[in-house]
Design a protein around this nucleic acid. Structure first.
Lengths: 300, 300
DNA sequence: ACATCCATGAAGCAAAGCTACATCGACAGC
DNA sequence: GCTGTCGATGTAGCTTTGCTTCATGGATGT
């Protein structure tokens, strides 16, 4: 029973298919398929079953994939065990963040980590639909993800979650607008407005509809844009209002952020890591810096 | 960092050398040496150091070997995970016992296990010095070992210990002797006797000297014999007395076993298994039967 | 019905890992 | 002190494993 094959099985589950798993493992689909074949032979029970043109793990396969995570963790502990004797942690950590978090966190993270020396951080920006964040941990060591603040995390059982920041969502209004002078806005104040929202399925998309529930009227969404800088430009030009996170937006001079009263609107920013990569000392150090940085931002 | 290499490192530690480890792994010493070389390269720190013409693990190597055990356990859990879906446990389990335990336990164990069906038990009898028992777990799945009852187990951290039986040590006297009629014997009764003991370093060798301490005189050992059947023959022929375990000896018609009063003399029989081996369902089943059988013997 | 996508099988090739043999250092005996 | 032996470690060569490339089959959607 090969460790690489177990890792492959785990990747097939998290990526949802042979081809996708092959991509993150830097292999051909054929190699993945062959590994699954020998693993199935070893196990003595079918681990996968075809469904449509794709495939899915059987209960046995699922149990084995769970066990594969533990094996990966144990192996990583082994590496860490002697790395502890080899001196200060060193190496390269791949960090991914969605755009606004990247804007907010990555510069400071790079500064902080560079100050410790010996650690290279490879950054990437990846913003995906909410359900797709955990799978990114196959590509990156640390994945900065976001979700509606009050709801259940819903990241699934196969990732370690490190909370970074709870960010209130404010109403972005044009700087010249009468609303911009207010200290806070009630839901009723913005009931009939045009809205600029994020794409369906993406994090905090549902928060706007929740605000609508508070006023009794469904908000009228006129645009769906994911990049907050683009959203700010649209708001400044008077094309509508938007809900924007307080700390990771607001650079635009034509936009004012006004707190929303009476509704708990916020997003939670989490760092996601695979249980085995969490065992790596370098990764732990980078996470530590990330948490410290987030705490600093929160305080102002 | 290869799992086979980790397993090899663990074997080198438990066997105390490259050649011995190679033997239990069914490899050549050269292969073991090469595996250690690549493992050391991966680890980045020396894992072994030469001492005399042998070698010893460095602290880093020791830590890594500990981690290797966890890896092996995780891997075995993975196998078990899907074996649970494959139906009733099946396979072959290698059981080793020292002679008297083999005589006492193995026939009943084979009967019990055969009744469940599907499991093959391969028996062996190995009696070694006390410190050498744990290393036998590299050769056998279950090792039945013994030790002085009241003392610290002292089997080391790398084996699971399953207690089977506490066996009082009785005084074996010739059937015709006046002592044979007694219900119990005080240490003073046997103070000046000739004794037949086991070889130095073997389990329960020290118990006799402890009895001597109770009388204030060192017992006079005239023979050192490990096999209890031979001991019984010598006792029957009047060559001396001996301390023999109550349940696993006593077949000889010319020998009577008389309880010893005033001194806690006994031996503890344990089953030793490697932590990873203990994860195998078949092994668990065999152990279960072994425990049940021991309980039955204890009750009579 | 056709084109597409995904998983899987067969053939060939590169690399990893083992065995056999030789070498080197350390210890015990003469 | 020299020699024989034992244990660990290199070297050469072969076997085996595991990958890629290419081809096939089944399922889906247009």
């Amino acid at each position: 029973m090969d460790v690489r094959a177990l890792e492959t099985l785990r990747a097939v589950r998290s990526q949802g298919g042979v081809t996708a798993a092959a991509a993150v493992l830097h292999l051909t689909p054929s190699a993945v398929s062959q590994q699954l074949a020998v693993l199935t032979r070893d196990a003595g029970v079918p681990l996968t079953e075809r469904v449509g043109r794709g495939l899915r793990l059987t209960p046995a396969g699922d149990a084995l994939a769970d066990a594969a995570v533990d094996v990966a963790v144990a192996l990583e502990r082994a590496r860490t065990a002697c790395a502890a004797f080899a001196g200060a942690p060193t190496g390269t950590v791949r960090v991914s963040a969605f755009q606004s978090a990247a804007w907010m966190l990555l510069p400071g993270l790079l500064t902080r980590v560079a100050a410790r020396g010996g650690i290279t951080v490879e950054c990437a920006d990846e913003d995906v639909a909410q359900h797709a964040f955990p799978a990114l941990t196959d590509r990156h060591d640390v994945v900065v993800a976001h979700r509606p603040a009050e709801a259940d995390p819903g990241w699934g059982p196969d990732v370690h979650v490190v909370p970074l920041l709870r960010e209130p969502l404010d109403v972005a209004v044009p700087a010249g607008s009468p609303l911009a002078a207010r200290a806070a806005l009630e839901p009723a104040d913005v009931a009939g407005a045009d809205w600029i929202a994020v794409r369906e399925g993406f994090p905090v998309a549902r928060v706007l509809t929740d605000v609508g529930v508070a006023t009794g009227t469904a908000p009228r969404v006129v645009q769906r844009i994911n990049d907050f800088h683009v959203v700010e430009a649209l708001v400044a030009a008077g094309h509508g209002l938007s809900l924007l996170p307080r700390y990771s937006s607001g650079g635009h001079p034509g936009v004012a952020l006004v707190p929303l009263a009476g509704v708990r609107a916020g997003r939670q920013v989490d760092a996601l890591v695979r249980p085995d990569t969490a065992e790596r000392r370098v990764v732990a150090v980078v996470l530590e810096e990330l948490v410290a940085l987030a705490a600093e931002l929160r305080r102002g």
